[in-house]
């Protein structure tokens, strides 16, 4: 009897909790494209260009790619890659940056990065800049990038994305 009453009393709240939990959980996993660590290199005032960096994680089962980037602060944003070959450093534009299913594309110094040309003004350290990212699946994301002089301490070994 008592157990039965308690069961009834608990049933409603627990349903609410479970529903809430599912709702929150689904929100967390809603966007299969996760953008983190977006930053722009602070440059001396007379420079009219700078570089941008970010991590893009693709948790979906579909391959995707970054195909274009825009920002209000620059005339043009290009995607570039830096290649070291036989002790030569080559910087060259690329048309897309692949983000295969379940993988993370790292745009970081020494590798893929964004080049922002024709800056309206050079952003100051700790400012933030909005980047519009266009993906191959026709979707778009907005990323907020902070302006910094150097990369934040980069862990020597990047732990595998476990989330």
């Amino acid at each position: 009897m008592i157990a039965n009453t308690m069961y009834k009393a608990l049933r409603l709240p627990s349903l609410v909790i479970i529903t809430l939990f599912l709702f929150v959980a689904s929100c967390r996993n809603q966007d299969p494209i996760q953008i983190t660590d977006a930053w722009i290199r602070a440059m001396p005032p007379s420079q009219t260009m700078t570089a941008g960096f970010l991590r893009i994680e693709n948790t979906s089962p579909q391959d995707n790619a970054l195909v274009a980037v825009e920002t209000a602060m620059a005339d043009t944003v290009e995607m570039h890659e830096m290649v070291y070959e036989n002790e030569m450093m080559k910087m060259q534009p690329v048309p897309r940056i692949a983000i295969p299913a379940g993988q993370t594309a790292q745009l970081k110094p020494g590798g893929y990065h964004l080049m922002l040309f024709g800056l309206k003004s050079q952003p100051a350290e700790n400012d933030s800049v909005f980047l519009t990212l266009y993906f191959e699946d026709q979707s778009t994301r907005i990323a907020k990038a902070f302006v910094r002089k150097t990369a934040q301490q980069e862990p020597k070994t990047q732990p595998a994305a476990t989330e």
């Binding site: 030569m88 060259q92 080049m115």
Partner: peptide
């Protein structure tokens, strides 16, 4: 050392490839 100027294909006008020694 070595370097090469790569013109066009970018809003930068040209980019430089260069040795990193």
């Amino acid at each position: 050392a070595s370097y090469e100027k790569v013109e066009g294909g970018t809003a930068a006008g040209y980019l430089m490839n260069h040795s990193t020694w």
